[in-house]
Design a binder for these strands. Structure first.
Length: 303
DNA sequence: GTCTGTTTTCCTGGTT
DNA sequence: CAACCAGGAAAACAGA
């Protein structure tokens, strides 16, 4: 997965970048970016997030989204815990929301969101105290130490942030059901005992990383940060097309720390998905693929 | 160390 | 001709 070296580069970039900086947080100029708009896709899509450096009031919609994602990641909640569609708002609006608003918008997760935003509003950052509070309320079923490390060491790596959100949807749906049924915060100490080992082991491979198809999906799901790499051809049918095939391959290679990745090789991996019905063939259309029945998390109103 | 699932690499041949 | 597609074979890789 992500090497420490790569991790450090990204982390450093995200920490030192400021709005006027033109430096590439990944530390080099990608050859494939030549000829593209002056936008490093690896930066704009994955790294160099600055929501944590700005007062929430000044967040863009996307930064609001990143904050939500951060909460999910940090607390090992999954995507269905927070209805992102309810937070298609900028920071100013977010800051004006009351606890009631949050609860209305996000149900049992509302309290967490409210606490977090209050802390950010008054302290300017998501401090450890905050995380402890959050962790006390929604704990992970995972116990690996890395998950409990400070978010600023881990959370801005482009590894795993979006996939986890989708991979554990089912799990969180249960959490939400439990929490709303009991009107109590989610107690995962109890829940942990209820989970069977098999269930916890259901995330067999790739617990933190991402599969190629998830990587592709996540690019598609972030239109604001997807500088023309891949686009939906038919959103409801899950049909999409590569616009910059080699750029996507390079980005994938960057994620896997493999500088020799090409679209040729990426597409071979994509073709393996046909058999597993993660993708369906789209005949006669170059660079066009379609999500299959075993691909999850791409539908607009999938829950 | 083995097993297994996934991805990478290389390849041949075909299509747009 | 370049770029892409299809899929076999085998190696590499990572997690269990």
């Amino acid at each position: 997965m992500c090497s420490g070296h790569q991790a450090n580069m990204i982390l450093q970039g995200s920490n030192i970048m400021n709005i006027n900086s033109s430096s590439n947080p990944l530390g080099h100029q990608s050859s494939w970016s030549h000829g593209y708009p002056p936008c490093d896709v690896s930066t704009s899509f994955f790294g160099a997030s600055q929501w944590h450096e700005l007062h929430p009031q000044y967040w863009t919609k996307f930064q609001v989204w990143e904050w939500l994602q951060h909460l999910l990641d940090t607390n090992q909640m999954d995507g269905s815990c927070i209805p992102f569609q309810e937070f298609d708002i900028c920071g100013e609006r977010l800051c004006s929301m009351t606890l009631q608003d949050f609860t209305q918008a996000a149900g049992s997760a509302g309290q967490l969101l409210y606490n977090s935003i209050q802390s950010l509003k008054w302290h300017g950052q998501c401090g450890s105290q905050m995380l402890q509070t959050l962790n006390a309320v929604v704990k992970s079923e995972h116990t690996e130490p890395s998950l409990m490390t400070s978010w600023n060491e881990e959370r801005f790596l482009f590894d795993g942030s979006y996939d986890e959100m989708y991979e554990s949807k089912t799990h969180c749906r249960e959490e939400i059901t439990m929490a709303s049924a009991s009107h109590h915060p989610i107690d995962l100490d109890t829940k942990k005992q209820q989970d069977s080992p098999q269930k916890l082991g259901s995330k067999k491979h790739n617990p933190r990383g991402t599969h190629l198809w998830e990587f592709i999906r996540d690019i598609l799901l972030m239109p604001e940060k997807n500088p023309g790499l891949i686009k939906w051809e038919d959103r409801s049918e899950g049909v999409f097309r590569f616009l910059k095939s080699e750029a996507v391959a390079q980005l994938w290679g960057k994620k896997k720390n493999n500088s020799s990745m090409t679209y040729e090789k990426l597409s071979r991996a994509m073709r393996y998905y046909y058999k597993r019905e993660i993708l369906e063939r789209v005949d006669g259309r170059r660079l066009v693929y379609k999500f299959g029945k075993n691909a999850r998390g791409w539908k607009e109103n999938e829950n």
